[in-house]
Nucleic acid binder design. Structure first.
Lengths: 202, 202
DNA sequence: ATGCGAGTACTGTACCGTCCAGTTCCAAAG
DNA sequence: CTTTGGAACTGGACGGTACAGTACTCGCAT
């Protein structure tokens, strides 16, 4: 089913994603999207009833692409000897994923328009953010069951883990636009975060 | 010097703050502001050259009002016996201040427009956010000097402390609009955050 | 040939920033 | 206390622009 119509549909989605991420909701015109998709504006309106609908669709479509990042959080080796090393590696990958410019840009896009699209913000939070946290919580619970961690409230532990890692770099990126961290910076953050976490939860 | 002109100036600033916080930059018209300030549009333009300038002015004006919150972070009693209790109380006040709806709204306003006003976002980050962190770092350094904490990198410790507390509630508020936490929720967060922090840094 | 899409013109609306004619405030001088 | 002059303010109209969404014609692909 690669009909012409379906191909146009994809082209519009992709173009809209790029333009919205780049220029924000208000800064993006339907003409921009049509032009980038190499499609007439009429065709855009044939596939998406209006601008709001198009925006909601592309935002929710991104939640489907989070699976690889979330899978990351589910796979943590459970050998005691290398616990800190394994946790640091997980932290490092998590940090890389969440400071990716595209991801940052998406966060800002949703936050910026959460007033105007309240349901969208809530739904993305649940399907994206919350889903990651519960997955991580399950991982911690597993480690606790094996006696590697001491965890009363796994969800709270997941909150702490991500807060230790992400609060600063994500905030800086939110406020100052794109920020480039060196690999060494991220290594240091990951190691320090994992160390603090283990001090409290081992 | 409460001249008519000065009063109008204040009225415009206050009205603009309210409307911008409520409807965002793009969602706010100069007519809205003039109307709420009970002032003619001409007068608005007599005091502020254009919309961008007015926006920048009201955002930076808010950094001056952060002093009370930041002073909070500088005053932490230094008696060993009640360290956890004192830290928990500090955490609780910090959490209250940062989850205040107005503060959340301001964060979103700046983040939403950080693309269009890159300097503004950076400046607010430094004069608001960063300033709080360095103050907190100084407090931790003081505690370390007195042997109450073991802190290599005080700024990193401040990052960890705030991340433990704020990552989740602030994120939820960012994405889902206004969120009401119960007092009990905040108490629990503050206590848990302080506990984890001390486990790693005492 | 027929139906879908390109291209483009068009409508309606919102809003920034300016302009102007008349009015109100305020302070200094009579 | 009254007068007077100038600055600040009001209210509304207006030009210019940007953009969502529609209409319509022509050409191309299946």
């Amino acid at each position: 089913m690669d009909s012409r119509s379906a191909r146009k549909h994809e082209a519009i989605l992709e173009a809209a994603t790029n333009v919205f991420l780049d220029k924000g909701y208000a800064g993006t015109s339907m003409d921009d999207i049509a032009k980038l998709a190499a499609v007439s504006k009429q065709t855009v309106y044939k596939h998406f009833s209006d601008k709001e609908k198009l925006f909601a669709d592309i935002v929710l479509a991104t939640t489907d692409r989070l699976d690889t990042t979330i899978d990351l959080l589910a796979e943590l080796p459970t050998d005691d000897a290398n616990l800190e090393e394994n946790l640091t590696r997980l932290a490092r990958q998590f940090l890389t994923a969440l400071t990716d410019p595209r991801v940052i840009q998406l966060r800002r896009l949703i936050i910026a328009n959460a007033d105007f699209f309240p349901d969208l913000g809530t739904e993305w939070y649940e399907r994206g953010f919350q889903r990651g946290l519960t997955t991580l919580a399950a991982t911690f619970q597993r480690l606790a069951d094996q006696g590697l961690l001491r965890v009363d409230d796994p969800l709270l532990a997941a909150n702490h883990f991500s807060g230790l890692l992400l609060w600063i770099p994500v905030n800086k990126a939110m406020f100052t636009g794109r920020v480039q961290y060196t690999e060494a910076d991220l290594d240091r953050y990951a190691a320090a975060g994992a160390r603090v976490f283990l001090a409290a939860y081992r």
